[in-house]
């Protein structure tokens, strides 16, 4: 377990900024309890300072997880967000997409969001913007990247992809062994 280097921090923040924009400040500068980012093996954990201090005494091979896993660094140094970060992303998301009940299951099986399943979308969402996907009763289901801007979606046919799937809560079951 160690703090992130500058390059690593940049990669993590750039990826987070895609979803929550300037709200990252709220993650770093928290009123309730100081939190920090820690790297263990290749995973990035967002953890309160008190738990981090407890975890210091656990040997590196024995430490499986702490705090909230935000994602992991690939071997080529890119940062990949995991579904476990959804709690924070949903809380601070700038752009949101709500999908109809008939589109929930397809999305949870790892498919992209089609226009037919689109219930609501934040106005003025640009193209290729990270969005958090909600069910119609405001339960966060996952996140993805918009394929078109809100304006462009009007002209599309119902089978066109609106949001590219990145992660969904179905992964808790599908990738149970590798996720944590």
């Amino acid at each position: 377990m160690r703090p992130l280097t500058e390059e690593e921090s940049k990669a993590v923040f750039a990826k987070l900024a895609n979803y929550i924009g300037k709200n990252i400040v709220h993650l770093i500068d928290r009123q309730d309890e100081p939190h920090c980012f820690r790297l263990q093996k290749d995973r990035v954990f967002y953890v309160s300072e008190s738990s981090m201090k407890l975890a210091i005494s656990v040997a590196r091979p024995n430490l499986i997880s702490l705090g909230t896993c935000f994602g992991k660094f690939t071997k080529s140094g890119k940062f990949k967000l995991h579904i476990t970060a959804l709690d924070y992303l949903a809380q601070y998301a700038k752009y949101k997409v709500w999908i109809k009940p008939n589109g929930e299951m397809p999305f949870l099986y790892g498919n992209h969001v089609l226009k037919a399943h689109l219930g609501r979308i934040t106005e003025d969402t640009p193209e290729h913007q990270g969005v958090v996907v909600f069910s119609m009763n405001d339960i966060p289901l996952g996140f993805g990247v918009t394929a078109r801007s809100t304006v462009d979606t009007r002209k599309l046919d119902p089978t066109a992809i609106i949001v590219f799937h990145q992660a969904d809560v179905g992964e808790y079951l599908r990738d149970e062994e590798t996720l944590f």
Binding site: P3, E6, S9, K10, F13, P34, I56
Partner: peptide, 22 residues
């Protein structure tokens, strides 16, 4: 690498500096 245990205040300012640079 930085030491695992840093003061929360310094870590926060460090992260905010990176953010502003971004």
């Amino acid at each position: 690498f930085e030491p695992t245990e840093m003061s929360a205040e310094s870590e926060k300012s460090h992260n905010l500096a990176i953010l502003s640079k971004l």
